[in-house]
Write a protein that binds this DNA or RNA. Structure first.
Lengths: 235, 235
DNA sequence: ATATGTGAAAAGTTTCACAGCC
DNA sequence: GGCTGTGAAACTTTTCACATAT
């Protein structure tokens, strides 16, 4: 959804002033969702000892079209060498810069239930530069007990922790009933991005909060649909 | 991505023979990803006592355009009443039929690590008609112990369980290293759909296996990008 | 010879705008 | 009055195809 205020002149459609002349004003959302997948494959390739890779090989690993890979990357610059391909290390670094994961991010977890506990120990977050610096819950029973090497703290400490530690991102793993209220509180506390596991819409209309939703039941329903409708969808 | 074998005649592009003349041959992928979200909102509305809803209200809850909601639904039939809106119960049932969740699905979980354990207890699955009927792991330590009300079984029992119980779906929560091998084994055992949490591509080129991927680290990276690039993406 | 980067075409998706029904 | 269902337009994304570079 594009905010459509003042979009009536059909020419200057946004703030980004187009860098060199070849890149689009906006990066396609679809491209963004694939960028992290490219990085994942590159990391795997590097671990297996490779140094160079071609767009077609990346594409094949992910079930995409080679020209799509090239175009996605070309949104951000020219990273390849004609006739040769892409240098794996160089491309990895470039993608990390694009994603903003060339530095580490402090993250808090809100909700220390089953899912929250599992997420707190998820190695993949750490491996990509996300550092868990706080865990919050509102259950008196849990507060004070340890989760990994962090003490579970009361939600009341949220504001002070966010202020003291430089935290921008939160993983929201609370029950649906409290998710909207907690999200609002996170925003007020200064959190700018939420990875939301609660099965409700927490993004508010006029908010500058960025939300990425992961609804596990929704994904399973999509799977059921895909299984039942093999050969009937567009992809 | 559509498997493009034998798609060279340009006319009969699929199996579905177009129902009444107004629906497209294929359902847009984008529509499918929203269907379960509509259902989620409807369930919530119903719980709050509502009986009717309008496309605009559903859209607002999800941050979409009202006409998109109407068009999505119209892919499957006419569920609304002009001047009135949609009957919540009726629409819920219709969407469940579309998604294939108007009946219950047996699901197995493979991988009883942190994430697997959390997923095994996730209430949302059960609430949408997904029943966990088996848990598998290859760690000798875990085999035989209980997870919820199920015993963790050896991966060696996989084939017999899939055959005895009618299981079509699997949740794959094993480490990246073993994910591809396990997925292949699941397919051979007769599983037709996998919800894959391992951060690797398990979908094989010529396979009829349906895979839906959930890569938690990828989602967090997408969030980081979105936070850094506010106002620069297409949505 | 091989593989990138990219105009241009094709395909897919969203939004507009309004006829049709309540 | 109000809201759905849907052609047609607008827009976005993907794919083709080839000039260009090594």
């Amino acid at each position: 959804m594009m905010p459509k205020a003042d979009s009536n002149d059909g020419e200057a459609r946004g703030a980004r002033p187009r860098a060199g002349g070849t890149q689009p004003n906006y990066v396609p959302v679809a491209t963004v969702t694939r960028l992290a997948l490219y990085l994942r494959e590159l990391q795997q390739l590097q671990r297996s000892g490779a140094q160079r890779i071609q767009s077609g090989a990346i594409a094949k690993r992910l079930g995409l079209n080679d020209s799509q890979v090239r175009r996605d990357l070309s949104c951000f610059g020219q990273f390849g060498q004609r006739g040769v391909g892409y240098d794996i290390t160089g491309l990895m670094k470039a993608i990390q810069v694009i994603l903003g994961t060339d530095r580490s991010w402090n993250v808090i977890l809100v909700g220390a239930g089953n899912l929250g506990r599992a997420l707190s120990g998820y190695r993949g977050f750490d491996q990509q530069g996300f550092r868990l610096v706080g865990v919050f819950d509102c259950s008196e029973e849990k507060i004070g007990s340890k989760l990994g090497n962090l003490f579970i703290r009361s939600l009341d400490d949220l504001e002070s922790v966010v202020e003291t530690t430089k935290v921008e991102l939160a993983i929201l793993a609370v029950p649906a009933e409290s998710a909207i209220a907690v999200a609002q509180r996170l925003e007020i506390a200064g959190i700018t991005g939420i990875l939301n596991f609660a099965p409700v819409t927490v993004r508010r209309p006029n908010s500058s909060l960025t939300v990425v939703d992961v609804d596990l039941a929704v994904e399973l329903q999509r799977l059921a649909f895909a299984v039942v409708n093999k050969n009937k969808t567009t992809d």
